[in-house]
C-alpha cells in the first residue's frame, strides 16, 4: 500500500491505496467522486478525463500514486463558486450537448482543456481535439456546437434547436 495525497477540486485529499490503483478508481472509490466515469478498458472512450495540474488526462491511464502532490480537477469542481453551471457546462445544457450523460464529464473536461489551450477553436479543431472522447448519443453535433458557443462564437446559423 502507498500513501497518496493530492489537491482535488481545491481541497486536500489523501488515502492508502495499492500501487496498482488507477487515479480513476481512487477518485470514484476512495473519494466517492463518481462523476468520473469508466466506459472502457483500453483508454479509448475518454469518459474519465480529468485535469491534472491543468492538463486533460484520462484518469484510467494514470496511477493514483503518480498524481501524488498534484492539483486534480474533476467534473465535480467545474461549477461556479455559487453552484451555478460553469461556462462550458452551461453551453452544454443550452445547446443540448448531452443525452444519457455518461460521456459528459469527460467531454466537459476535454472541452475546458481545449478552450484553455485554444480559446477560439474552429469546428475542425474541436472535432480533432475530441478524438479521444467517445459519445454514442449525440452524434457530436451539439457537443461541437456547445464548445463553439462556450468559446463565444455565434452558432445560430448552424442549426435550429
Amino acid at each position: 500500500m502507498v500513501s497518496v495525497s493530492m489537491n482535488v477540486n481545491g481541497k486536500p485529499a489523501s488515502g492508502e491505496v495499492e500501487g496498482r490503483t488507477l487515479l480513476s478508481a481512487f477518485l470514484r472509490e476512495n473519494l466517492k467522486l463518481t462523476g468520473t466515469h469508466i466506459g472502457c478498458d483500453t483508454s479509448q472512450c475518454g469518459a474519465c478525463v480529468v485535469h491534472v495540474d491543468g492538463k486533460a488526462v484520462k484518469a484510467c491511464t494514470m496511477l493514483a500514486a503518480e498524481a501524488d502532490g498534484s492539483e486534480v480537477k474533476t467534473i465535480e469542481g467545474m461549477a461556479n463558486a455559487d453552484g451555478s453551471l460553469g461556462v462550458v457546462q452551461q453551453a452544454f445544457q443550452d445547446h443540448h450537448g448531452l443525452q444519457c450523460g455518461f460521456c459528459t464529464p469527460g467531454m466537459v473536461m476535454s472541452a475546458a482543456a481545449l478552450l484553455s489551450e485554444n480559446p477560439n477553436p474552429s469546428e475542425a479543431e474541436i472535432r480533432e481535439y475530441l478524438e479521444g472522447n467517445l459519445c454514442r448519443c449525440t452524434g457530436y453535433h451539439n457537443i461541437v456546437k456547445a464548445i463553439m458557443a462556450a468559446a463565444g462564437q455565434d452558432v445560430s446559423k448552424i442549426a435550429a434547436e
Binding site: 463518481t34 468520473t36 453551471l85
Partner: peptide
C-alpha cells in the same frame, strides 16, 4: 417548446446516479 433539459444539471455536475455509482 425547446425546454432545456432539467436532467442535464446533475449530469453536468457529476451528480448523476448510475448503477456503478
Amino acid at each position: 417548446a425547446s425546454s432545456k433539459r432539467r436532467e442535464d444539471v446533475r449530469f453536468l455536475t457529476g451528480k448523476g446516479r448510475y448503477t456503478d455509482d
